[in-house]
Amino acid sequence: MAHDTPIAVRSSGHAGWVRLTHWSIAMAVLVLAFSGFVILKAHPRLYWGNAGNDLTPALVELPVSRNYRHGGWTTPAPFYRDVGSPVSAARTFDIYNENGWARSLHFLVAWFVVLPGLGYLTMATLTGHLHRHLLPGRTDLARGSIARDVALHLRLPLPRAPGGPPYGVLQKLSYAFVVLVALPVLVITGLAMSPAVSAAIPILPTIFGGTQSARTLHFLGFSTIALFVLVHLAMVLLTGFGRQIRAMTIGGAP
């Protein structure tokens, strides 16, 4: 059925700089997700504020490695006489820690998001791509148009889509969210955790509520990207996989 429906709109296809930055960022995000997970496994506890460790309460503990709720601490010794004094204890448990390579890989591959990302945002602004194709216009936000687009996505088979803009309103909203909100927040919360960056730009951890809050938001930001990637891949599969991949690689108007 889907194959009989002609594509309603003509597309100009994806520009070369879109394809280049798309794949650099897509591959880098894959490696960052992997190395980020390895880093998370070394300390699978998330906190809010500036200080957070095994001897302070966590917001959430993730059961992702043998470090999850590991015992192995000497009896905590208080620093001061007052009740509720901060304590110290020595670790007696041999933790999972592969951060030597995982951190270095994470910070190397991050360049392949940051530099193409900056190039993408510059080009998208200068060429009008951002305005014409990604930011929802008046007709996109007209009463009922979002509901219509949602209804369209809930019926299978999905109509064939062109490989490239113009995009539907849900597409515009999700792409704009990823390039303007999620990826920048991931990069900035990442930088906010760096001791040298946070010293040079003290506002970075502060705007997120502290170093540990930035770390928690980094994880949540990644979770939204992961969700986006899953939905994105599903849509590519359901709207004409071969044509979509061709349009994003060798290019041309599909």
Binding site: A42, H43, R45, A51, N53, I95, T211, R215
Partner: peptide
């Protein structure tokens, strides 16, 4: 800031 991810 510990490389493991915790702070104190």
């Amino acid at each position: 800031m510990c490389e493991e991810g915790w702070t104190a």
